[in-house]
Nucleic acid binder design. Structure first.
Lengths: 107, 107
DNA sequence: ACTTTTTGCTACTTTTTTTGTAGCAATGCT
DNA sequence: AGCATTGCTACAAAAAAAGTAGCAAAAAGT
């Protein structure tokens, strides 16, 4: 199993532009949700599945493998956890929360 | 055609948590890429298709309709363009570019 | 006014992703 | 030993995305 690798063709860039590779990775179902939920703390596969409310084990497994390969998630004695890079991505996504709150008002 | 609406069930939240709705929307293929490319300036459907390098018209059309409904994109005399909200989202995504550059070094 | 080009799609089929459900092997607890 | 929990895998079904062709409307050119 592979993940959208910078330097290889990805969605949005035949030459594998790094940003497009990142968009391809984060733009898969549940990617951002998993990172978000994992930030609450390391946890087991099954617990993570529950945090996500409705993810199937097959999808969770696939996404986890990709994110591990992409160095955003690692396995620890306490289960799956964000790496330093994963934590950084979380911090970059963080501002979306407030923005989304505001955005939601219009619906 | 509908988009992940805050307040209604979305991927990651049965109650439609606004952030999960946003993740659902942005986490569809090409969503972030389209926003990114549109920031270069308003343009026509066909031109946007070329900016995206490899998007199919059916997917582009679907994504555009969703993003228009989500108030991130509007139609103008010059073609499709980011709205104020779309521009804000772009600004929030912007830091990902530098991060991705760095991340890419490890592959 | 009429031809040509460009534009914004739609229609349709194929391929890929995601979902949903069942369940099994490994580990740990009692 | 027996039972519960964990981390998955297998498989089928549904949904999303890709790929290709082409048409109707508008714009541009002559």
């Amino acid at each position: 199993m592979s993940f959208p690798t910078p330097g290889k063709p990805v969605r949005g860039s035949k030459s594998g532009n790094h940003l497009m590779a990142l968009f391809d990775l984060l733009g898969r179902s549940w990617s951002m949700g998993i990172i978000w939920r994992l930030h609450e703390g390391p946890c087991t596969f099954r617990a993570l599945q529950e945090r996500c409310e409705s993810i199937s084990p097959s999808t969770l497994n696939k996404r986890l493998k990709e994110l591990v390969q992409a160095a955003m998630i690692k396995r620890t004695l306490e289960g799956y956890a964000l790496t330093k890079k994963g934590e950084e991505i979380f911090q970059l996504l963080h501002p979306l929360e407030d923005w989304a709150r505001n955005w939601a008002k219009d619906f």
